[in-house]
Design a protein around this nucleic acid. Structure first.
Lengths: 212, 212
DNA sequence: ATATGATTGAAACGATTGTATGAATGATAC
DNA sequence: GTATCATTCATACAATCGTTTCAATCATAT
């Protein structure tokens, strides 16, 4: 790939992750050390640049997620899929992605349902969600569909929230939370989500209010 | 309160919830049917207006959360706090808030850790989190502190994510998810988070990869 | 009725935004 | 070496931004 084009991608990714998606093109080209017009030359517009940045990082992560899921299904045969393994296939490639600014970048992306993000969702996210929902159905055949999808979204929410606050979790928790240990974080999240997925389905009655 | 000031608050809240925080002051004053200069007259700046909008909605919700927690503690005495009830006190006032644009508004707010949102966090959110963390500690006395705080953040993430995507959850789930039934949603989330809180603490070893 | 202070109004400010233009420079093929 | 195409450059454009100014209008108290 062209050198300036790469420099723009890297600089824009860095600034988007640090300051949000409303960084000016001038700030990007300054950071990249290239001319102002280079963005509209190599990409058509600022929005297309953003698409390219997201795609560059999401694609390999999604590829890894599907690879891990394929491996699980291959070695499981016709038996129910192991829930923790499916969760790991869904979470680990994201939480442990080797891209420096991936967490805040994706965290911001997930949380701003503007027009452009709906497009990103349909292109990059929806196929993954559909594929994994089928896997969760195979892991929990007795769980009703709506309950299963709700719990998948709860799990995604936990993941996104940690990505979003990864830079501030340590200070605001007085150092108790350490998001840099991605392996331990992944195990914690898998344990939490797996238990949530296996929770008894709530009936149409008030929640328990008595003793523990 | 002054009429124009109220109209600005309502219009800005509506537009912020619908379009995000980068709505122009002109769009707000047009929507409110007031003069452009009214925003900088009644509030000092656009940022102060945003503070006022957030505070107006968060304060009564937090008040309700603490009331419910107080009631739980009062009727529990020295015994361990009932986990589901504490979760309900934390989640219900948010999920069932009677403000029309509350969900997308708070959803956006939680997910944009800009400078202003750090201030909002310290003013409105941190005291609540500290208070409820103590309650969760009383509900789960054997759960290590770091694990407890992680799981609280996972639960907050599930809540925020649903708030953030409340307007699109139904279409992208083909109508399976219905966020408008806040009572049922609250029960589902309590069941999910409670099970997550009670999950066995993960050891320092790879997650289970074998059969289910 | 008149004075006083609060509020509203129209207009303009300087700064910044994304994008477009056309000349200058670069590299590559013949 | 020269022609051809891709790339870079400085500059300008029109639009929009948050904020300020100051006169006009309103409400209220005396």
């Amino acid at each position: 790939m062209n050198d300036t084009k790469l420099r723009i991608l890297d600089a824009a990714e860095r600034l988007f992750a640090q300051q949000g998606f409303d960084v000016s093109i001038r700030a990007i080209t300054d950071e990249a050390g290239v001319n102002l017009a280079a963005v509209n030359y190599h990409f058509q517009s600022k929005e297309a640049l953003l698409d390219a940045i997201i795609a560059r990082r999401i694609e390999p992560v999604n590829k890894r997620r599907l690879e891990m899921l394929d491996a699980i299904e291959a070695r499981t045969g016709d038996r129910p899929l192991p829930l923790e393994a499916v969760l790991e296939a869904f979470l680990a490639p994201v939480l442990e992605a080797p891209f420096e600014h991936f967490k805040p970048l994706i965290g911001r992306m997930y949380s701003v349902p503007e027009e452009f993000i709906k497009r990103v969702f349909h292109v990059h996210l929806a196929p993954i969600v559909v594929r994994f929902d089928a896997a969760f159905a195979r892991a929990l055949p007795d769980l009703p569909e709506s309950e299963r999808i709700w719990r998948l979204y709860f799990s995604i929410g936990a993941m996104v929230h940690v990505m979003n606050w990864s830079r501030v979790l340590r200070p605001i928790s007085n150092g108790v939370l350490d998001p840099s240990d991605t392996r331990a974080l992944m195990r914690r999240m898998v344990a939490f989500a797996a238990a949530g997925f296996r929770a008894p389905v709530v009936e149409n009655q008030p929640v328990h209010r008595g003793t523990n």
